[in-house]
């Protein structure tokens, strides 16, 4: 739970009066373009930074003042890998277990469980530097869960992964809340990834500009869009206007209209427009459309500052070469 959080670096306000609340066992998505203040917020929540003003609580502990309790309650997967590449997978987990005082009797078992869970048992004694990007991420998630945290933070968990590892990782992440009774707090700038979240907050320039369930947010855009190709567009449009009292327009030989519940609307439409229909397609609004509507810009087509670009380049370079 976060109240009126503000973080300033000199004259730059990275996080500007942010408030939100996450329920236990939920997957919460923190969405926004690069540099929106997502990572800064995470760093405050996981006690690496002190807020300039405002309060943040995890499990009812104050992140700034009761950092020891907060740290025990959280697990984190950082944006950049924080594994020791010169240790084996098992040694990385062992290090973590000692650091978090996992009981001696349980240590071995939890590590084996974690390795099995992320499907790395047969690579457990290989050095991490030989792992692929996806394997490293999975290992990091496993590590974050070793001490049974209440909240797991995932900062851009799929950044730099190929599409297949990305899908696998998502399937895996969505099983976590049930299996481990953990609340997930994740950030991403891939809108389509946020669809799996129970609740989303969209952040831009340090401010939360919208929050709610993915379905709620899509209503901001105004529902689904149905496209129809007919043998006589003029007539079809006239009929639809008359019968349904809806706004219809034509573009590139197709007529289109927006409806709150597109799938329920299509049968009725076809019944009325009848044999003239040649094809029907429907488009659901994406979170990208939501962001577009709210800010007037695409989330991914933004020009970062020169420094951001260099950072991104270095990051992707490292990711690529880490695998060798």
């Amino acid at each position: 739970m976060v109240e009126n959080l503000v973080k300033k670096f000199g004259s730059i306000t990275a996080v500007d009066d942010v408030s939100f609340e996450v329920e236990e066992g939920a997957i919460f998505g923190f969405l926004g373009p690069n540099g929106a203040g997502k990572t800064t917020t995470i760093n405050i929540l996981c006690t690496l930074l002190s807020p300039t003003s405002g309060k943040a609580y995890i499990n009812r502990y104050d992140c700034d003042r009761e950092s020891a309790e907060v740290r025990r309650a959280i697990g984190i997967v950082f944006q950049d890998s924080s594994l020791d590449k010169d240790l084996t997978a098992r040694e990385n987990l062992m290090f973590h277990a000692y650091l978090y005082r996992v009981d001696k009797t349980e240590r071995k078992e939890r590590i084996e469980d974690a390795l099995r869970f992320v499907d790395l048992t047969d690579r457990a004694d290989d050095l991490v530097k030989k792992f692929s990007g996806g394997m490293k991420r999975r290992l990091e998630v496993a590590r974050g869960l070793i001490h049974r945290p209440k909240v797991l933070f995932l900062d851009e968990p799929t950044l730099g992964l190929d599409p297949q590892s990305r899908t696998n990782l998502w399937e895996f992440i969505t099983t976590l809340p049930k299996l481990h009774r953990v609340t997930i707090f994740m950030t991403t700038h891939y809108m389509e990834e946020a669809e799996v979240c129970d609740k989303i907050a969209i952040i831009d320039k340090g401010k939360i500009i919208a929050s709610g369930t993915p379905a709620d947010l899509k209503k901001i855009v105004g529902g689904d869009v149905i496209y129809l190709k007919t043998s006589n567009n003029e007539e079809a449009m006239k009929d639809i206007r008359k019968l349904f009292d809806m706004e219809v327009s034509e573009k590139d030989g197709e007529i289109f209209l927006s409806a709150l519940k597109g799938d329920a609307c299509i049968p009725a439409l076809i019944r009325e427009v009848g044999e003239r229909v040649l094809s029907v397609r429907m488009q659901r609004p994406t979170l990208n459309d939501v962001f577009l509507k709210l800010t007037g810009k695409e989330i991914r087509e933004q020009n970062g500052t020169g420094l951001d670009n260099i950072k991104a380049m270095v990051r992707s370079y490292r990711r690529r070469h880490d695998r060798d």
């Binding site: 006690t47 020891a68 740290r71 890998s81 924080s82 594994l83 020791d84 650091l99």
Partner: peptide, 14 residues
């Protein structure tokens, strides 16, 4: 530089 320090810094140790 390589990020491992963060693993140590967020752990519940002084």
């Amino acid at each position: 530089e390589f990020g491992f320090m963060k693993e140590i810094l967020v752990a519940p140790v002084s």
